[in-house]
Design a protein around this nucleic acid. Structure first.
Length: 417
RNA sequence: GUGGCUAUAGCUCAGGCCGGUUAGAGCGCCAGGUUGUGGCCCUGGAGGCCGUGGGUUCAAGUCCCACUAGCCACCCCA
């Protein structure tokens, strides 16, 4: 084997595909109930879109994007996340001119050039939901209710919804000043990275995992204590609605997000048994992004959930499928007799299996058993001569003889559903 | 990008420290044990460039180096 899949990119196959399909089916059902419509955007976008939206100083843009020049010299990037594309599409098609709010979901691959590990791949897949055109707190709550329902339907136990408010352009500068002031008195306790972060993005110091930084941050000022009146009201209302809907959540004043465009409500769903990459879903409000990309800032919020990570921790099991019928034909004559019948049954929607080689009946029975077929149709020399075939129920081993002329009708009854 | 561990049959893994005939097991696969009947059991069989490349040695799956990939952690995030 010389050519292999490239690093961090995996073939999804077998039972894993069944799990993905279940996740997607459940997600579509939940999204539908909340009025989200599907949007499929291209995987490639102009690099500028992500540079402007995600934030020039973020790790994603600085070192994780798959960026290259195409044949006409344009700088293109494989999307590292979905939000920017959804907003781009929303503005490009002037959807904001239509009555809103507008609710979209999209499902597909994202690309980030990171070092792979558990729950982290270079091509990974997300379920993404976005609401555009509504600045109010009710959507925030609705979105989290939706996420909660999704996680429940997939039977993720040991997940926790964590929420916070990051403030807005009005109050965040005050908070930022307070935070920098606080840490400046204890830079000796911070790790090297955090000393750098203090300059670039002081909020990130809060979720550093190193021991010293955690200790130093223990009494750090919290964003929620510095919220302006509008942000505080917004946050209170979100929490009130969550409580009204009995959605369990934990407030974490340290929850900050890695992308620059977030304001006010932010949230993450944390899975207990996922190791270091423990966020199965994350999102928040990003009102300023729409304006940044040239539209009117009239409210935007969304979240993304990682399909690979959901699959790792969900309790729900996909149903296993199996053939309704296995055809054991013995000899060329019998095979030719059933061949058109098999095609006809398949056209009626039954899953019918049949071996292509001339194998012993025993071998064919073993195969039927392996496939967990409901029934086996046995047809050989003596059945053809007698004008009757045998149908054996695999569950209890019972057999019955059926007139060849009645076979099609009899076998059709095997169809499930 | 950094560090640690790992790479042997389709799968899960022994063998490695202490180099030496034909590299093993379980599961899976194929066949037989019924003349035309699955699961359990028994017997037999197929299947390995021991990740790739280089080095040490009379001799390398085993020791050394590099590379690649995987896992775990850092980082980052879904």
């Amino acid at each position: 084997m010389s050519i292999k899949a490239i690093r961090g990119m995996k073939d999804v196959m077998g039972t894993e595909v069944a799990r993905w399909r279940l996740i997607e089916a459940v997600a579509r059902k939940v999204f539908r109930a909340f009025g989200f419509s599907e949007l499929r955007t291209p995987i490639l976008e102009k690099t500028e879109l992500f540079a402007r939206s995600i934030g020039q100083a973020t790790d994603i843009v600085e070192k994780e994007m798959y960026t290259f020049r195409d044949r006409s010299g344009d700088s293109l990037t494989l999307r590292p996340e979905a939000t920017a594309s959804v907003v781009r599409s929303y503005l490009e098609h002037k959807i904001h001119r239509r009555p809103g709010p507008h609710k979209f979901f999209t499902i597909g691959p994202m690309f980030r050039h990171e070092r792979p590990q558990k729950g982290r791949l270079r091509q990974f897949h997300q379920l993404d939901a976005e609401v555009l055109g509504d600045p109010g707190p009710q959507v925030d709550a609705e979105l989290m209710v939706m996420l909660t329902q999704l996680l429940q339907a997939l039977e993720l136990d040991n997940v926790e919804l964590v929420i916070n408010s990051l403030g807005c352009p009005v109050c965040r500068p005050d908070y930022r000043r307070a935070l920098v002031g606080f840490f400046q008195d204890r830079t000796d306790q911070l790790c090297d990275d955090c000393r750098r972060r203090l300059e670039v993005n002081p909020l990130r110091v809060l979720d550093c995992k190193s021991e010293g930084c955690r200790a130093a941050a223990a009494d750090a000022p919290a964003t929620i204590d510095y919220l302006c009146a509008d942000c505080a009201d917004h946050y209170q209302e979100v929490k009130r609605l969550l409580e009204l809907s009995s959605v369990a959540f934990r407030e974490d004043p340290r929850l900050v997000r890695g992308l620059d465009y977030y304001v006010r409500t932010t949230f993450e769903a944390i899975a207990g048994d996922l190791g270091a990459q423990n966020a199965v879903a994350g999102g928040g409000r990003y009102d300023p992004l729409v304006a940044e990309l040239g539209g009117e800032a009239n409210g935007a919020i969304g979240f993304a959930a990682g399909i690979e990570r959901l699959s790792l921790v969900m309790g729900a099991e996909p149903p296993t499928d199996r053939p309704e019928l296995f055809v054991a034909a013995l000899g060329d004559q019998a095979r030719d007799w059933v061949f058109p019948l098999v095609a006809e049954l398949r056209s009626a929607g039954l899953w019918v299996e049949m071996t292509s080689q001339d194998k012993s009946l025993k071998a064919q029975m073993r195969r039927a058993n392996k496939l967990a077929a409901d029934a086996v149709l046995i047809l050989g020399r003596s059945e053809l001569d007698a004008g009757r075939a045998i149908i054996k129920q695999m569950a209890d081993g019972s057999q019955q003889e059926i007139e060849l002329s009645q076979l099609g009708r009899a076998v059709r009854l095997l169809k499930r559903d």
